[in-house]
Computed example of a mutant assay.
Amino acid sequence: MPKAQETVLEIDLSALKHNFEYLKSKLQKDTKFLAVVKAFAYGNDADTIALYLQDLGVDYFAVAYTGEGVALRNAGITKPILVLHPLPTSFHTIIERCLEPSIYNWKVLNAFLEVATAKNQKQYPIHLKFNTGLNRLGFDLEDIQTIHSKLQWSETIHIKSIFSHLAASEDLSEKAFTEQQIQSFKNITETFEKVFDYKPLLHLSNTSGILNYSDAHLDMVRSGIGLYGFGNSEKENKNFKPIATLKSVISQIHHIEKGETVGYNRAFKSEEAITTATIPIGHADGIGRQYGQGKGYVIIKSQKAPIVGNVCMDMIMVNITGIVCEEGDEVIIFDTSHTAEHLANTANTISYELVTAISQRVKRIIIK
């Protein structure tokens, strides 16, 4: 693989295929697979990844907001796209672009029904979100009868699925809570089928739900972080391949004398003579200030080089004392060995935050 000559994010589609096939191996043959490609496919390249997954046979896609769904349609995605957090201002666009909204409260339901009726829609697919303990979005069990009363004479919309979201499926110390959520969703689905007299698609499991709760796979599962190479545990991480490698180069090397300072606010004061390298990546690229002051590190010539002082908007400085390197040499911010999860841990955060923060100004290179 060629050495980086600038800051780039390499995206390995073979790793994506591996992760998809591993997750699929956990499912029953008829269980549908929804790929979550919100936030630029978790900071990668949503168009390329979604098109590749569509070719691999994904059944559904999910995005957070309507604009993300529109971008996928423009890229050539023809599979159904669930919009997880639509806002009423986007409902005309949702219908025009054949997107499927999550309906999670009365205001949203009433607003979408009004727009769909005005547009003379028949059986337009919607997805009802229920709250089972995450306490973020969703109707409650007690709302089902009123929803039925409101919709029973309407042919405008069709409830294609009902779903909920697990709050702590990756944390086995919270197993009792997760099982309580699963039971709550079961109660919701049983009540729904009794009141509405039909069975929509049921989905509850996220990546960790797929891995840890086979009884909660139901009709469809939703995976985001697993597709991109993280299993939310040391055990499962071994079964996944991170799809992204973030690389840069050494722009300049400095020899810092004892007592000299490095970077903004003179945040680092050297207690001895050291050598630093300046790298063209900063908090505008997704490497937040929390990685500064020696917490985060990069890899140069297979050795760790800690970040010195504050992270700048466009640059970081790292300590390369004892590392034999020169200007123009490649720098690894994260890859398959020194993963985004490892780097995120240094700042007491999670891989999700780090990878989704990678700026769109960072060049993407697709490895097929």
Rank of each mutant, 00 (worst) to 15 (best):
I274F: 06
E236A: 15
V262H: 03
L201Q: 10
L227V: 10
G229N: 02
G209E: 00
G229H: 02
I279H: 12
N232M: 13
I253D: 04
S214A: 15
S214N: 11
H217N: 04
N237R: 10
T207Y: 11
A277R: 00
S223N: 01
K241Q: 03
N239T: 12
N212E: 03
I250S: 02
N237L: 13
F240P: 00
I253H: 03
H283K: 07
I279P: 05
A273K: 12
K247W: 08
V249E: 10
H203C: 09
Q252C: 03
L246C: 10
I210A: 10
D219Q: 04
E234H: 11
H254M: 09
A273T: 07
L204G: 05
L204E: 03
G229K: 04
T276H: 09
D219G: 01
G282R: 00
N239R: 13
E260R: 11
H254C: 07
L211D: 00
N265E: 12
H217C: 12
V262C: 11
Y228I: 02
I225G: 03
I281D: 07
P280G: 07
L218K: 07
G224F: 05
E260Q: 15
K269L: 15
K235E: 08
P242Q: 09
H203D: 09
E272D: 08
F268N: 03
H255S: 15
E271F: 14
I225W: 08
K258G: 01
K258C: 06
T245E: 05
I253K: 04
S205A: 14
S233R: 11
I281E: 03
G209D: 03
E271K: 15
K258S: 07
I281V: 14
P242D: 01
E271Y: 13
I250C: 08
E234I: 15
H254Y: 14
M220T: 06
M220N: 01
G259L: 08
S270G: 06
L218S: 06
H217A: 04
H283S: 02
R266F: 08
T261G: 05
G226C: 08
D215A: 13
K235D: 05
L246M: 06
A267H: 02
N265W: 10
L246P: 03
R266Q: 15
T245L: 08
H254K: 15
L211V: 10
A244Y: 00
G259A: 09
I253E: 05
A244I: 09
I243A: 04
F268A: 07
L204K: 07
E271V: 14
I253L: 14
I256D: 11
Q252D: 00
S251D: 14
S205K: 01
P200G: 07
G209S: 01
L202K: 11
I256M: 06
L218A: 04
N206R: 10
E271W: 15
N212R: 13
S251N: 13
I253N: 06
L201S: 02
S270N: 00
H254S: 12
E271G: 14
A273E: 07
R222W: 00
R222T: 06
E260I: 14
G259K: 05
N265H: 13
A277E: 02
N265L: 13
G224Y: 05
R222M: 05
I210T: 05
R222V: 01
T276N: 10
T278F: 14
D219S: 03
I281Y: 08
L227R: 12
N232E: 14
S248H: 06
A267Q: 04
N239H: 14
Y264S: 13
